[in-house]
């Protein structure tokens, strides 16, 4: 447990203060600008705010940010060979992998909650913060934490076998989640965000997400937990037998 904690402390700090943090800052500025501008327009306050936070943050940027951090956390250490220290320690590789996963979830959750907060303040700070607005805010925060847990398991797995995991990550984030996840009918059920939005539709009663063709909160939660465990298990199995020449 001490060894896993050491990885969590080290990797979380490394992710949050890496150069990739600049991307998060730029995204936050972009969201502040878009939602800040939207707040000045003649829009219905609660539905518009919920739609922006759903479409812009949960729907579009969350998979991208998860991919940027998740696809690089282990891969960067393999490339710069700093992973040697972990691989030659007596820490079982299962716990080492879990250490990376937990640090990725923590970092991603912090970044996502900060971005959600920036978006929320930019929009509702101008249009008025009340209990309904706060309800949307807290729901999106929790959804982004759930998304961080699921996407982290996926992108951490992708980063192991591929030397350029960003390409596959980009394909997934834009084509799979962005395109297939937007199609009508049941085909959208193959995208992670369908289940995140399904949970959101139960929690948020404003905007398009409230009327989303959902799969049901219990079923969606089970699917998300299931695929997270599945991706983690595959990642652990692969990491345990992977050679590091």
């Amino acid at each position: 447990m001490i060894g896993m904690m050491a990885i969590i402390r080290y990797s979380t700090k490394k992710i949050l203060f890496s150069r990739k943090a600049v991307v998060s800052v730029l995204i936050a500025i972009f969201i502040a600008a878009v939602m800040g501008y939207a707040a000045t327009q003649d829009l219905e306050r609660l539905p518009a705010g919920a739609d922006f936070m759903d479409a812009l943050i949960l729907f579009f940027f969350m998979p991208i940010i998860a991919m940027i951090y998740g696809a690089s956390i282990i891969r960067d250490e393999i490339e710069d060979k700093s992973i040697t220290q972990i691989l030659t320690s007596p820490l079982d590789r299962t716990f080492a992998y879990l250490g990376y996963y937990i640090s990725l979830v923590i970092s991603l959750s912090i970044v996502m909650v900060l971005i959600v907060t920036v978006g929320f303040l930019s929009f509702f700070g101008q249009t008025g913060i009340d209990s309904d607005a706060l309800g949307i805010y807290f729901s999106v925060c929790i959804l982004s934490i759930i998304g961080s847990m699921v996407y982290s398991s996926l992108f951490l797995l992708i980063s192991l076998p591929f030397k350029r995991p960003l390409y596959l990550g980009l394909f997934y984030a834009f084509i799979w989640e962005g395109f297939i996840g937007s199609l009508g009918g049941r085909i959208q059920e193959v995208a992670i965000k369908h289940y995140i939005r399904s949970i959101g539709s139960d929690w948020i009663s404003h905007g398009s997400i409230s009327g989303y063709n959902a799969s049901g909160i219990g079923y969606s939660s089970s699917v998300l937990v299931g695929i997270t465990i599945f991706f983690l298990a595959i990642g652990i199995l692969y990491f345990r037998v992977k050679e590091f020449p």
Binding site: I2, G3, M5, A6, I7, R9, Q85, S89, P90
Partner: peptide
């Protein structure tokens, strides 16, 4: 300290 932590030292 990081290295020690990986060896369960604290």
């Amino acid at each position: 300290k990081l290295s020690g932590g990986l060896h369960a030292m604290s």
